[in-house]
């Protein structure tokens, strides 16, 4: 994933996956499948945050548009993730890794670091999403539980996706 056409294809793919497959899953109150977040996380290490914000805004808006609910929730959550992604990456990756045009993934980071990266990223995204959705401090423990459950579920989903497409990526690797 390092050419504009790839980004656009991925964008469409994740929009469709989120609205037609994962958004449709009813897994109860605490588990919200949110796969489109992976789109924001798939940009290369050194991708400019300025552009990433625009992409985050676009995919958040698209998901908002296509799914039932209050407008702007996904947009806002995606923007927060777009803004903080670079900082999270700095936590889990070394300076040398930033220099290369590589995609943060299972292959480049390994299980432990990638999982940490996912959990932090999803925690930020879901906190904003569910926090704005409930919009009450009195529900804080419940919201926190939702955030943690969903973050765990989506981390595992993304890990699964990474494992499934690992070989394919190796072929088209840079």
């Amino acid at each position: 994933m390092n050419r504009p056409i790839h980004y656009i294809l991925m964008f469409v793919l994740f929009c469709l996956l989120q609205t037609f497959v994962f958004g449709r899953m009813q897994l109860g109150h605490f588990f919200y499948p949110c796969i489109y977040v992976l789109f924001i996380l798939l940009f290369p290490f050194g991708y400019k945050t300025l552009y990433l914000l625009l992409w985050s805004f676009a995919i958040g808006l698209c998901v908002d548009m296509l799914s039932a609910g209050v407008w702007g929730l996904h947009t806002s959550a995606s923007l927060f993730l777009g803004l903080s992604r670079q900082s999270i990456l700095k936590l889990v990756a070394s300076k040398e890794e930033f220099g290369q045009l590589m995609v943060p993934g299972l292959r480049t980071l390994g299980y432990q670091r990638y999982f940490t990266f996912l959990m932090i990223a999803l925690f930020i995204h879901h906190s904003v999403l569910f926090g704005l959705e409930t919009f009450r401090f009195s529900y804080f423990p419940l919201t926190l539980l939702r955030v943690l459950c969903s973050a765990l579920l989506n981390s595992l989903l993304i890990l699964l996706a990474q494992v499934a497409f690992l070989n394919q990526k190796r072929h088209s690797g840079n």
Binding site: G46, K48, L53, D64, W71, G72, T75, S76, L101
Partner: peptide, 29 residues
């Protein structure tokens, strides 16, 4: 693409605030 440091941090923050503003506007509207 390494040149992200060339863009002042303030620009990034500004863009973030503008887009976030739009998102909040969408929510309230």
């Amino acid at each position: 693409r390494r040149g992200h440091s060339l863009i002042p941090k303030i620009t990034v923050l500004l863009l973030f605030l503008v887009l976030q503003g739009i998102a909040i506007l969408l929510m309230t509207r």
